[in-house]
Simulated assay, not measured.
Amino acid sequence: MLRFAGLLTALLAFSAEASAQQAPPTDRPGDAYELELRVRTESQSTNGSSSTSNSGGALVERVVAVLPEGLELEFDLPADTTPAERARDWQWPARILWSESAPARLLNGPELEQRIEVWLKTGEIPREACGRWFFSWTAFKIECDPNAVLETLKVYNLRSGAHGIEAEVDPDAVRREKAETDVVVGEITGTPVTLEQAVAAHASDQISGTETLVRESDPQGRPIRQVRTVRLEIITADGVVEQSTSTQTVTRTPLQAP
């Protein structure tokens, strides 16, 4: 899949293990929701640089079956997706088993494998390119692992996880995220750097900040909106102060009355 692979994933994750929540009792086959994602990141530093970026996406979540072990859910692109747009993304539709007591599990992996093969052939992409990073108008990774869909869905997940929380960021997690970003940039620019080298370069960074997550529900208790905000301040070894705010908003709208 040619898509920006979410370099802020670790940054936006809580340092503590999120507590699972019980699936809403109103779930039944046929229920459907539109999931809209919006991410806004603003940053500035004392060296005079600043930036603002906006990104997002949309999926449709459908309840396929209510099973003793959890919910069978299907995630697909919106109905107005064109054939050309769908051809660029092999991940959808994806079916998963969701449970409040176990990690999500991909149910149609073989189907995704077949779509990956067609996608590579159609795009004339050699299998050897899988896992590598490139740059056009943004950074993207040639993703060929069916289970990568589970990482994508974590961003859209409003069914489980802690909420109504404010916590301090984990400096080590932020350092590693910055180091992984450096490795990707090095691969794209042709100036490779190892992860060990990148980690060492950020070892003396002074990192502080907060992570907050607020979730809203409708009168029936169904989650309808979630806002996750990360505010960071990083003082680098040469004294440059970098400040950033990332806000990730997911809106969940019923497509039909449950």
Rank of each mutant, 00 (worst) to 15 (best):
T41G: 06
V155Y: 01
F75N: 00
R159Q: 12
F140G: 00
V240Q: 13
Q256G: 13
L112T: 03
L67E: 03
L2Q: 13
Q248I: 10
P171T: 00
K141S: 01
S208V: 04
A58G: 06
A13V: 03
S45M: 11
L59R: 08
V250H: 02
W119G: 03
I165K: 15
V63S: 00
F135Q: 13
R62K: 15
F75T: 02
E177K: 05
W137K: 12
P258D: 01
V214M: 12
T122D: 12
G56T: 00
A79D: 15
L71W: 00
W133N: 14
F134M: 10
L97C: 00
Q206A: 14
A257T: 14
P146A: 00
E72I: 03
T52K: 12
E117W: 06
A5R: 11
S99T: 00
Q226I: 04
E168D: 13
S244H: 09
P126M: 06
A32C: 01
D182S: 09
G161Y: 08
N47R: 12
L67C: 02
G190H: 11
T210I: 08
E242R: 13
S15V: 05
L59D: 00
V250F: 03
R231S: 08
L112E: 06
Y156C: 02
D145E: 14
T9F: 08
V199L: 12
T82I: 04
L97N: 00
E85T: 08
G161L: 07
A16K: 15
A173E: 07
A32R: 14
P25G: 05
E216L: 07
P219S: 09
A13S: 15
E128V: 11
L7P: 15
G190N: 14
A5C: 09
D31C: 08
P24Y: 09
F135M: 12
P171Y: 03
A20R: 14
I188L: 14
Q248W: 14
T229E: 04
L195R: 11
A13M: 11
D80H: 11
R86P: 01
N157G: 04
L120W: 02
E166G: 07
Q114E: 15
E128D: 10
W133K: 09
H202R: 15
G161R: 10
A173R: 06
S15L: 07
